[in-house]
Design a protein around this nucleic acid. Structure first.
Lengths: 215, 215
DNA sequence: CACTTGTCCTGTCATGCCGTCAGCTTACCG
DNA sequence: CGGTAAGCTGACGGCATGACAGGACAAGTG
């Protein structure tokens, strides 16, 4: 799809080059987890990777460029999130389970990639289309499936006609993403991780079906 | 409460000093709106304020310190958000109106302060307790009111016992904040601002009362 | 083995921002 | 008018940035 990996000055990267490139990306990922985005410097990433800043600039235009790469890789993995919803039912007990598994899978994915997702969120909120597109790529799979589910229930008359499936789905997905980003924040409100999940699932179920789940 | 405003080196700031200090904060605010957080430099803020970098460092330890100040000022204004919920009813048509006005007021506040709120969100997500506290200060008022409303309905038996009021309220508030941050994103999903609001209100109403609103 | 080719890395350098200090200017007060 | 404290800035060492040319290295060739 993306063709060969190329250096900034146009050379094609060989085996060794790709290895160092990936090492730089991995080290960048680690840095993002351990220090504020604003303080991540090229020189630190390079040092951590046991190489020099000049090498970094051979593969990436700047820190942001490398971050986009990390984000892209994560977004590709994130495509698996569709599986949480493909072919699931929103009716009866199965519906409750669908909601629970969606919440579970979503939070888990976010927890695993929280550092890079923070930055993607920031970039998207700042209006950067590249980050925005990546955020879409991750959320779209879940969002579309949710919107379809709402639209389907709507067609059967089980959901009010004036509900906008895309708006509801988007809001629910945004909620999941936001809660995942600030999981620690809930502890201050006296809410433990284990308690949080069923309540989130409840909200998702309510939003999609308009009704309380049968457990 | 906070006593006198002091410079970094301990002098008390007079009228003139406070003016330049505030001017620096205002210019910082503008910069945050127009360029990515990562690219906001002390020298740019100082230039924009018609002063020198050295002056900046007289009032703030660094960019982050100044950002915290801006955020603090905004958080104080944000206390007004409580008014959106104080003494409101969640029953019948009034309940629907309460939900609508909450969504309206919340989105408006976020739209007005989106730049600084982005940064606060980032800081909080990165685990910085100072930003985290400010985010709390803003959200707590809304969150507590919502949680109280849920708990009250729960006491009357109108909401299931296994619902955790704080978890539900927190999730709804997080949803509002996230949607507000990414309002532009919804346009890609074909959802217009005007359509978004009632659907958000619906989700809030569903979350708080467990039932569809009577319009 | 010497030679060539193309990939890969780094030393070095000009540039620009950071953060501090000493010292100058301005405002206020007796 | 002189003293004192507030207010501001030029200047400087330090460090990150980003570009380049050249050296190191692996692999193939005669």
């Amino acid at each position: 799809m993306t063709g060969q990996v190329r250096t900034v000055d146009g050379r094609v990267a060989g085996r060794r080059g790709q290895a160092t490139r990936q090492k730089l990306l991995d080290c960048l990922s680690e840095m993002l987890s351990s220090s504020p985005y604003r303080d991540v410097k090229v020189i630190d990433v390079a040092r951590k990777a046991g190489t020099s800043p000049a090498t970094f600039y051979q593969y990436f235009p700047d820190v942001e460029g490398a971050v986009l790469e990390v984000a892209e890789q994560m977004a590709t993995e994130g495509g698996q999130l569709t599986q949480l919803l493909d072919g699931r039912s929103w009716v009866g007990k199965a519906g409750w389970q669908t909601a629970q598994e969606l919440v579970d899978g979503f939070l888990e994915f976010w927890r695993k990639n929280d550092a890079i997702l923070r930055v993607v969120d920031l970039g998207a909120a700042e209006g950067d289309k590249r980050f925005y597109k990546i955020r879409m790529k991750i959320l779209n799979s879940v969002n579309n499936s949710l919107a379809d589910a709402v639209a389907e229930l709507q067609a059967k008359g089980r959901v009010d006609k004036d509900v906008n499936p895309a708006a509801v789905a988007g809001s629910l997905v945004a909620m999941l993403a936001a809660v995942a980003s600030h999981q620690k924040g809930f502890q201050t409100w006296g809410v433990k991780q284990a308690e949080l999940k069923p309540n989130l699932a409840l909200l998702v179920h309510l939003g999609v079906t308009g009704k309380k789940p049968t457990k």
